[in-house]
Design a protein around this nucleic acid. Structure first.
Lengths: 128, 128
DNA sequence: CATACTTAGTATCGAATTGAAACCTAAGGA
DNA sequence: TCCTTAGGTTTCAATTCGATACTAAGTATG
């Protein structure tokens, strides 16, 4: 093996626990949630409004997983209708810093990807 | 064309094309495939053996999507049983560089995540 | 000649995940 | 009493996934 992923565990082994982390990272909702929490703690319904297209179920599920993994913290405040504030943990912050790179990549290279898709789709074997 | 939100395109809008890219990135198999191709072109069955747990179907599907997005190239070589070589494109390489960060993060912080999971699971409302 | 084996997929089917929508709980206000 | 808010959970259909089987074309083996 060469340089990139050669320190101890490797994600290419099915039994490696790194797969657990990779599965969490490879979740578009988790990426978006962590991105928002990076700036400030946010309540449940505000997250729901800011992330267009997410369902309550997926938001709830994803937050629970992120909390379990120690990436976000959950604080229930006993106000009138109880409000719950989600915040990013120091560990989550280190991950979100990595994910920032991805979000930027997506926004930077989206055009090239769309052009590639068009070319592929108009190619001979494109239609299916 | 960019979306009209605050800073260029933003992935938090459901209709934003950036979501397309985010969906591709948020795919554990794509992350692993790009990581392998980074080093050298690889054939289909070799990829299948190196990425433990991937099915032929998912490998085939994921490669097709990556090709469509212009992230990997496909070259069919008319050898005996035809061999097909997959390689990373320059565009794919810029993405994989970002993903390296994630793979390293996963391998570096796996222990902290597992500890957090244990603590969560033994916590008050952990099991149901 | 017939069978088995190769690579790179596709087809099919049950299982798991997701999405959309409705429902639930608890407290305050009209 | 009913409505509203906040934060979920439940339900069910649709999509996706994983495992297995099958295709194609050519080679090697018996």
């Amino acid at each position: 093996m060469k340089s990139t992923t050669t320190k101890g565990s490797n994600a290419y082994a099915a039994a490696c626990p790194t797969r657990v982390v990779l599965d969490r990272i490879a979740d578009k909702w988790a990426v978006l949630i962590l991105g928002l929490l990076q700036e400030e703690p946010i309540r449940f319904n505000r997250l729901r409004k800011q992330i267009e297209g997410i369902s309550q179920k997926m938001l709830s599920q994803t937050l629970k997983k992120l909390e379990r993994d120690g990436l976000v913290g959950r604080k229930a405040i006993p106000t009138v209708p109880v409000t719950v504030e989600y915040s990013i943990t120091p560990l989550g912050r280190t991950l979100s810093a990595m994910l920032d790179g991805l979000r930027v990549w997506a926004e930077t290279h989206i055009e090239k990807v769309l052009i590639a898709q068009k070319r592929y789709d108009s190619g001979s074997r494109g239609s299916r």
